[in-house]
Amino acid sequence: MRALVAAAIGLAAALALVLTVTAVGAPQGETSPRPLLTTVPGPKK
């Protein structure tokens, strides 16, 4: 029974966190115009 109560409390806390982040929205800002490297550069020729 304790495990069920703990799981319910954890689920409620996670849902509250998701709703809070959704209500606040994304932070304002800009993305960098320079692309990020997604692979390791090879040897220079």
Rank of each mutant, 00 (worst) to 15 (best):
L4K: 00
G42Y: 09
K45W: 05
T22M: 10
A7R: 01
P27Q: 12
L17I: 08
V18A: 15
G10V: 03
A13N: 02
A26V: 07
T20H: 15
V40M: 10
A14F: 07
A12V: 09
G29H: 06
G10D: 10
V5D: 04
L11D: 05
G29C: 11
G29K: 13
L17N: 03
A12L: 15
T22Y: 12
L11N: 05
I9V: 06
P33R: 05
A7M: 01
P43F: 07
T38K: 13
M1D: 06
L37A: 12
T20V: 12
Q28R: 15
V21G: 01
A12M: 08
A7Q: 02
A8H: 01
A14D: 06
P41E: 12
T22S: 13
A7N: 06
L17M: 12
A14S: 10
A16F: 08
P43D: 09
P33Y: 04
L19T: 10
A8Q: 04
S32Y: 04
K44P: 11
A12F: 13
R34A: 15
A8L: 04
T39L: 07
A14N: 05
V24P: 00
A6P: 00
P35D: 01
T39Y: 06
R34W: 09
P33I: 12
V18S: 14
Q28K: 15
V5A: 01
P27W: 08
T22L: 13
L37E: 07
T22H: 07
K45R: 07
R2A: 04
A26D: 06
P27N: 12
P27M: 10
T20I: 14
T39N: 11
R2D: 03
V21L: 14
A14L: 14
V18W: 13
P35Q: 01
V18P: 01
L17V: 09
I9K: 05
P35L: 05
T38W: 07
V40K: 09
V24Q: 11
Q28L: 14
V40T: 13
T38Q: 03
Q28M: 10
A3I: 02
G10H: 09
T31S: 08
T38H: 10
L36Y: 03
L4E: 00
T38Y: 12
E30D: 15
V5S: 06
T38F: 08
A7L: 03
A3M: 00
K44R: 15
T31H: 08
L11I: 14
P35V: 01
A14M: 11
G10K: 11
G25V: 12
S32A: 15
P33C: 07
P33Q: 09
T39H: 09
I9R: 05
A12E: 03
G42N: 10
A26T: 12
P43C: 07
K45D: 05
L19N: 11
I9Q: 05
A7I: 00
P35G: 04
A16R: 10
R2C: 00
L11C: 15
G42C: 05
A23F: 03
T38L: 13
R2V: 01
G42I: 11
L17H: 07
M1F: 00
A23G: 07
R34G: 02
P41A: 11
P33V: 05
P27S: 11
P33L: 08
A13P: 00
R2L: 02
L36V: 04
K45S: 08
L36G: 04
R34Y: 04
R34Q: 09
